[in-house]
C-alpha cells in the first residue's frame, strides 16, 4: 500500500468505519511507515482538540437575551397570522 492510498482511507479509518480486511492492510502500513503514523496520530489529536475545547460557547446572559428576542418575534408573527385570518 502506498502512502497516498493510506491517506485516502484516513477519514474512514479514524471514524472506525472500515471493513476488517482493509483495516488489516492499513494497520500494516502504519506499522512500517513512520510518516503516515505521525499524520494519523496528529490528525486524531486535531479532531480531539476541537471536540474537547468548545471555542464558541453561548454565554448564559446572551442566551437569555436571544431567547427573549426570538420568542417576541415569534409572538408577533403569530398575532399577525391570526389577524390576517380574521
Amino acid at each position: 500500500m502506498k502512502c497516498t492510498e493510506f491517506l485516502k482511507e484516513l477519514t474512514d479509518y479514524l471514524d472506525g468505519r472500515i471493513n476488517e480486511n482493509l483495516r488489516v492492510e492499513l494497520d500494516e502500513h502504519l506499522h512500517w511507515c513512520h510518516e503516515c503514523h505521525v499524520v494519523m496520530n496528529t490528525t486524531k489529536k486535531t479532531i480531539e482538540i476541537y471536540r474537547d475545547n468548545q471555542i464558541y460557547e453561548l454565554p448564559e446572559d446572551l442566551r437569555n437575551r436571544l431567547h427573549q428576542a426570538i420568542m417576541s418575534k415569534c409572538r408577533k408573527t403569530k398575532s399577525e397570522k391570526t389577524t390576517s385570518h380574521e
Partner: peptide, 23 residues
C-alpha cells in the same frame, strides 16, 4: 400555535446553532 413548545425547541438547539453560526 403552542409557543411554549417552540420555546422548548429553541432551548434545545440554540447553543448548537450559535456554535455552527460562529464557526
Amino acid at each position: 400555535g403552542d409557543l411554549e413548545a417552540f420555546s422548548e425547541l429553541v432551548k434545545r438547539y440554540d447553543r448548537n446553532v450559535f456554535r455552527i453560526a460562529q464557526h
